[in-house]
Design a protein around this nucleic acid. Structure first.
Lengths: 107, 107
DNA sequence: ATGATACGCAACCAACGAGTTGCACGTAGG
DNA sequence: CCTACGTGCAACTCGTTGGTTGCGTATCAT
């Protein structure tokens, strides 16, 4: 089952892309300005932004000759949902274990 | 900055590996038994399990001629921590926005 | 009009990822 | 002992990915 979570998790697996997301939390920026703070080319950054965009994590709007990128934190939902579900299973299991321990210990 | 989150997110980006984690939530299993439910070879599954292990998401113990894999949900923390922080920034930003809207609207 | 700036597209490359097959080694059981 | 089973390791293929460079084009300012 290939779902959205694939792309979101894949997008987040790269430290450069996570860095970009963190920067874009604070400001709207262009690929060029972001590339200046990184040891890679503008095109490399543009590719990363394109992948983030495909994953629904950033959106862009053209303004004159610039393309402004902004963060789209709602896009994180598929990933955090999956994680939350895992955590739920996990905590539920712990709770059940505790319950069993209590009943066997007290009963 | 290459951190643990890299491997965790990368591990989760593959639907087969997420499936394996979900199965291993319910039971302890061998690579062979898991491969029987998937359209891929045992070795392919073993590789996935190896990657999950490297990411700290599963652990294994040898028992006779079998290798039993079990889930290690604590390994999800680096990923969920990062996501939680993003969510926090996001909500804080919304709260600040709401506050500004209120003050400019009422003041 | 000209030059500088910001962009997008395409080709190319090295490295990695997911998958396969083949084989050798330990272990369980007739 | 011998066979069958389960595993691990290595080699190989093939598509993807992160990176580069080069080029063409649109926009802004002089």
């Amino acid at each position: 089952m290939t779902t959205e979570a694939d792309h979101v998790f894949a997008a987040l697996s790269d430290p450069t892309r996570r860095q970009l997301l963190e920067w874009l939390d604070d400001e709207v920026a262009t690929a060029t300005s972001l590339a200046e703070r990184l040891p890679i080319s503008r095109q490399a950054v543009a590719k990363h932004l394109s992948e983030l965009s495909a994953a629904g994590l950033v959106s862009s709007r053209r303004e004159g000759r610039e393309t402004l990128f902004s963060v789209d934190n709602e896009g994180l939902e598929p990933a955090s949902e999956w994680l939350a579900q895992r955590a739920a299973v996990w905590e539920q299991r712990l709770a059940r274990l505790a319950k069993t321990a209590r009943s066997t210990g007290e009963g």
